[in-house]
Design a binder for these strands. Structure first.
Lengths: 167, 167
DNA sequence: GACGGATAGTTGAATGCTCAACAAAGACGA
DNA sequence: TCGTCTTTGTTGAGCATTCAACTATCCGTC
């Protein structure tokens, strides 16, 4: 944001009523802390997984979601929802995971538009191998730093921010 | 993570003592909610800025930090710290911002290794033009969804997670 | 049925980021 | 002054993600 003089406020823009509700200093601090925290967590996990398991965090999430699904199978659209990724991103990701032999694509039995992503045995093994290091990294990045109340708070806050996950 | 049977636990890995402390279900829920929230916030802001201002969020942060610095000038290494980005990422980003005429590079007066990033007038204008829409997006993504206590909680939690920002 | 719009998924080009390698300069002890 | 180690920053290759088409299929309506 611009300087504390709030230069933007003076300028006519496309905003609804020409006036913007700037962040107060409490919000400002919370916002920047959140940005920093989110960035650091993301970077730490991506790094760890890339180094130790040869995959980015996004790919790990794909494998993880598939591993918990019935028959280790999910429709692309559902998988996209679970991993918070666009259809395109998921499609590219699954293509890459297919090359590695960790995921296979099947046709949907009834809807011929649909594709099913299936976790292969090799994919399962890769996930199992990667999981301990990943969980350790998650602990180091988050849970080792928070007390139980804060964990509950984090969950409540995050669920408010996220677009209500379950319908 | 693998199934709730915790397949990874059985496997010998490089972990310290061969045993991994898995996440309990409270932690699991908090973790996934956080991931989802962080991803959605990131995506929403990136989208809004790309659409309305032609820059990714990371570039906006660079401009914002420079705008608050004395003489609108910062050393690359400091700027990297403030924007939570690697030296390489920042270098690429500043190169791009230079092409747009929003940032200029100067030599450091005493340390000849150092480079100074300077926000140009055009850069200031771009920031001022982008700020209202950005702040509105931040509100929509975060603060419109939280009450004041939660804002305070978010800050406290985020500061714990982030590697203590101030020395 | 046949049309029109929605839904599911893929593709390729463009862009940003990571990683590793590198260069250039400061810092410091012998 | 030399040699070495550290710090600062840049570069290019490779990879992931985004965006904008595009195809194929489904669904509802006439």
């Amino acid at each position: 944001m611009p300087n504390s003089d709030r230069a933007g406020q003076e300028v006519a823009t496309g905003e609804p009523a020409g006036c913007t509700r700037w962040l107060d200093s409490e919000e400002q601090r919370a916002w920047r802390a959140f940005l920093r925290a989110a960035a650091q967590v993301d970077e730490a996990l991506d790094r760890q997984l890339q180094r130790d398991a040869g995959m980015p965090h996004a790919y790990y999430q794909v494998l993880a979601m598939l591993s918990e699904a019935p028959d280790r199978t999910l429709r692309m659209s559902q998988l996209a929802g679970l991993t918070t990724s666009s259809a395109s991103r998921l499609s590219h990701a699954v293509a890459r995971l297919e090359e590695k032999g960790w995921v296979r694509r099947d046709r949907h039995p009834t809807d011929r538009r649909g594709a099913l992503a299936v976790l292969t045995d090799a994919g399962w093994d890769a996930l199992v191998a990667a999981a301990p290091g990943h969980v350790t990294a998650v602990r180091a990045a988050i849970f080792d730093r928070l007390d139980p109340e804060q964990v509950a708070g984090l969950r409540a806050i995050s669920e408010r921010i996220a677009d209500y996950p379950e319908s």
